[in-house]
Amino acid sequence: MPFNRFVEIGRVCTLNYGQEFGNLCTIVEVADQNRVVVEGPKVPRQMIPVKRINLTQFTVKIGRNARAKFVLKAMQEAKVQEKFDATVYGKSLVARRAKLQESDFERFQRRMAAKKAHLPKKH
């Protein structure tokens, strides 16, 4: 199976570092070998290093240096968010966000349920 996730204009990716961790964005411009310009619904247009993104299997058809409204429209028409949320990585990010939003009591309940699941059964 050949490699097909290239750094290219229109490639959808997720950010793997910083405030926008896990948010989807699209590569709008390739600056050089190590940096790209990205933009997305929750990510402002910015230049970031390639090592700070995870490339997905999805692409959208946009031109080089496309304006923000065209990028967002292309992502919505391709239903990128729904497709990404159906992937294994997307599901793990949703679970991770839910775990971060838990209250103390919810964490306690989860811990007690895990402890109860591992107890030996009485005959």
Rank of each mutant, 00 (worst) to 15 (best):
1 M>E: 12
2 P>W: 14
2 P>Q: 13
2 P>C: 12
3 F>K: 08
4 N>G: 09
6 F>K: 13
6 F>G: 06
8 E>D: 06
8 E>W: 07
11 R>N: 02
11 R>V: 04
11 R>L: 02
14 T>P: 00
17 Y>I: 08
18 G>N: 09
22 G>W: 01
23 N>R: 09
23 N>V: 08
24 L>G: 02
25 C>S: 05
25 C>K: 01
26 T>V: 15
29 E>K: 07
29 E>L: 03
30 V>W: 01
31 A>F: 11
32 D>P: 08
33 Q>L: 13
33 Q>V: 13
37 V>I: 15
37 V>N: 06
39 E>S: 01
40 G>T: 04
40 G>S: 03
41 P>I: 00
41 P>S: 09
41 P>W: 06
42 K>H: 09
43 V>A: 01
43 V>K: 00
45 R>D: 05
46 Q>G: 09
46 Q>I: 14
47 M>L: 11
47 M>N: 09
48 I>N: 04
52 R>G: 03
52 R>N: 12
54 N>A: 06
54 N>G: 05
54 N>W: 10
56 T>K: 07
58 F>K: 02
58 F>H: 02
58 F>A: 04
58 F>N: 01
59 T>R: 15
61 K>C: 03
62 I>F: 07
62 I>N: 00
64 R>S: 07
65 N>C: 08
65 N>E: 11
66 A>T: 07
68 A>M: 12
68 A>E: 13
70 F>P: 02
71 V>W: 06
71 V>S: 05
71 V>F: 08
71 V>I: 15
74 A>K: 05
76 Q>T: 08
77 E>C: 01
78 A>I: 05
80 V>C: 06
80 V>Q: 05
81 Q>A: 07
81 Q>S: 05
81 Q>L: 09
82 E>W: 02
83 K>D: 02
83 K>V: 02
85 D>K: 03
87 T>P: 06
88 V>Q: 14
88 V>W: 12
90 G>N: 08
90 G>E: 06
93 L>W: 12
93 L>C: 10
96 R>D: 10
97 R>H: 12
99 K>C: 10
100 L>E: 15
100 L>K: 13
101 Q>V: 04
101 Q>G: 11
102 E>N: 11
102 E>F: 10
104 D>F: 15
105 F>K: 12
106 E>W: 12
106 E>Y: 11
107 R>V: 10
107 R>D: 11
108 F>Y: 14
109 Q>L: 13
110 R>A: 07
111 R>G: 13
114 A>L: 14
114 A>K: 14
115 K>V: 15
117 A>D: 13
117 A>K: 15
118 H>V: 07
119 L>A: 15
119 L>T: 09
119 L>S: 13
120 P>Q: 14
123 H>T: 05
